[in-house]
Simulated assay, not measured.
Amino acid sequence: MDHLLSLLSILVLAVGVTHAASPTELYWRSVLPDTPMPNAIADLIKHSTDVGQLALGHPVTKAMATSTKLRSYFFLENDLHDGAKFTLHFTGTGSRPSLLTRQEADSIPFTTTKLPEILSRFSNEPGSHEANAIETTLEECEEPAGYGQIKKCATSLESMLDFTTWALRTRDIDTVSTRVGKEDSSEQQYNVVGVREATDSPDWVVCHVQPYAYTVFHCHTKGNSTAHMVSMVGEDGTKAEALAVCHDYLDGPNPKILAFRGFPAKHGTGNVCHFQPQDNILWIPKSTGTFLAS
């Protein structure tokens, strides 16, 4: 009996120190019980800050990228092949701004008509690089979707899940995202050693993290886009399985997007592609296509 009581005490102590699931994690489990949460999303939740602390004035500098760095992620689809070389910097999700719960996100305006209030809330000076990035993201989110696409800017994981399951008409979903051998590898040249389709499904949704004061996902359905998994090896030996999404230049991207300024359309050279950071996600319905990225 004493032995049994000791075992029970150990179990009670173990339960007491178990990580309590956040509301966001619980919502994931309720909506996608058979879909493992990607590590990148779990890391975003782990490193997130309470909205009250955000309101004290944490600038979005870490979420910003220079146009030069962004341009290094963009290329033409015809240039994607074995032996191609790309200079890239894959950063860990710890450098991203907070992922808010739906309740927190819904308490903050998200519209260009409230831009001065938003900038003041996050202590960003009008005209600053951070303020311009926030304004650009809001403008992009208010633009109509590309031809044949449905889009939504989701300000919380809950909102992203709702849009994805609605757009794909199922909760039986796989996820695909970029995987890198190092948590935060240095900027370096990567050599492509393999390219394959991410999926043969006729329907999918991709969600890109936007530069903002907190994590905002720009999600859209497939439309005329294509998705590839690109196997690469860096100069220091770092291996990466990078998700690349390619868009028809005429249907998107929006020419206002910073990364596309000065990137000329070249007819006959293929769609415009961009590599996805580790916290961007491709959502694929299991019942309508084969999962090819693993």
Rank of each mutant, 00 (worst) to 15 (best):
R96D: 13
T87E: 12
A265I: 07
C246W: 00
E241Y: 06
N39Q: 13
L13A: 15
I10P: 00
L4G: 02
A84P: 00
S294L: 12
H218D: 07
D50N: 10
T215L: 14
R171W: 04
P36I: 09
E143G: 05
Y27E: 15
D248W: 09
I10Q: 07
N254P: 07
I10H: 01
F86Y: 12
L168K: 00
T238H: 08
L119C: 05
E158R: 03
T112M: 13
K222H: 01
A133R: 01
S9F: 03
Q103M: 04
S72C: 09
R169G: 11
G262P: 01
P33Q: 07
T61V: 01
I45C: 02
V12Q: 13
A198T: 01
L292P: 02
G223D: 13
T175H: 08
W166V: 02
L8V: 03
L76Y: 05
I150Q: 10
Y27D: 15
G223P: 04
A154S: 10
G94K: 09
M37Q: 13
D248G: 13
S6G: 13
V272D: 06
M160H: 12
V205K: 02
F260T: 14
T221W: 03
A259L: 06
S22I: 05
T199M: 06
V272H: 04
L138Y: 00
K62S: 13
N132F: 06
L115S: 01
H208K: 02
E130A: 11
C207E: 14
R196F: 11
N224P: 00
V15Q: 07
T226K: 05
V209F: 04
N78A: 09
M64P: 00
Y147N: 09
T136F: 08
G194Q: 05
M37R: 12
G83E: 11
P211F: 08
E130L: 00
I281R: 04
T91Q: 12
H208T: 12
G237F: 02
P211L: 03
D172S: 09
K266W: 13
E235L: 15
H218M: 01
